[in-house]
């Protein structure tokens, strides 16, 4: 399913998108697949999946630990694409990838996006590629009809915002605060201002991420005009804290994701 269709459906139902983020293979391939299944059944509208990387500079300690667990269980780029093919058997909701550029580059940018198409990926966000360096990526992506998602932060000025909205497809990823990914208690006023500012530049849906961990956060960003909320570190933390009891882990993720989905309605 495309992003456009998904957001149309949500608007019709007067809902916003819940976008859970999971690192592929955290803590291992099988469990990770079970987690995805749980997340989808609990109300995810879009999936954001990360390829594990040894040096994830845009992520905080929680996601980095997930990357380490995944890499330890011998996950590599080939296995990530296989994984997505298996996810595709259980759901047709959009799948966005969050990938560090070196993983794309080592596979060959053209081959990477061809593999995305084969696996059923909807969009790719290259975490460490700013819009100025993105030509090679956007070209290959367009060729295979993969959307390219870009980040916008509170410090992105209007000049950069114009460049970004031009290259962005699918949705815009709004970074809710300065810093790296990680669950935080409060959500700043600046996020709400940023959403309003970006709205003036684009008709693309806006999804807010970085530091969203509670149903109240989701309600407040949706009220401010966001079309969806991305929740990563908070889910990954449940994985980390219940690493020795997978049954409990799955149950907790189910309850948590359901409560988040409720907040988008």
């Amino acid at each position: 399913m495309t992003y456009a269709k998904t957001f149309r459906r949500l608007r019709k139902n007067k809902e916003k998108a819940l976008v859970p983020f999971i690192v592929i293979g955290d803590p291992d391939y099988r469990t990770s697949l079970k987690i995805i299944k749980t997340v989808v059944e609990s109300g995810a509208d879009i999936l954001e999946l990360g390829f594990p990387f040894s040096d994830p500079i845009a992520d905080g300690p929680t996601i980095q630990a997930a990357d380490v667990r995944s890499l330890k269980s011998k996950i590599d780029t080939d296995k990530c694409f296989n994984f997505i093919k298996e996810v595709r058997k259980i759901t047709d909701i959009p799948i966005g990838l969050l990938v560090y550029y070196n993983l794309i580059y080592q596979r060959g940018t053209k081959k990477f996006f061809y593999d995305c198409k084969l696996a059923g990926v909807t969009s790719v966000l290259a975490a460490d590629v700013p819009v100025e360096e993105s030509e090679e990526i956007t070209q290959s992506a367009r060729k295979h009809k993969i959307d390219t998602v870009f980040l916008v932060s509170p410090l992105t000025d209007n000049r950069r915002l114009k460049l970004i909205t031009k290259k962005c497809r699918g949705f815009i990823y709004i970074v809710s605060r300065l810093g790296v990914t990680g669950a935080k208690e409060d959500l700043k006023e600046s996020t709400l201002k940023l959403i309003k500012r970006v709205k003036k530049h684009t008709h693309l849906p806006l999804c807010v991420g970085f530091g969203i961990s509670r149903p109240e956060h989701i309600q407040s960003v949706c009220k401010a005009g966001a079309d969806g909320a991305i929740v990563g570190s908070a889910i990954v933390k449940i994985i980390e804290q219940n690493i020795n009891n997978k049954k409990l882990m799955i149950n907790k993720i189910k309850t948590y994701v359901e409560s988040l989905k409720q907040a988008t309605k």
């Binding site: 500079i57 845009a58 550029y101 975490a127 460490d128 590629v129 700013p130 819009v131 360096e133 870009f150 980040l151 916008v152 932060s153 410090l155 992105t156 000025d157 950069r160 970004i164 970074v175 300065l178 810093g179 790296v180």
Partner: peptide, 8 residues
């Protein structure tokens, strides 16, 4: 090659 958060 940095995240958008660092570009400014």
């Amino acid at each position: 090659y940095v995240p958008e958060t660092l570009m400014p």
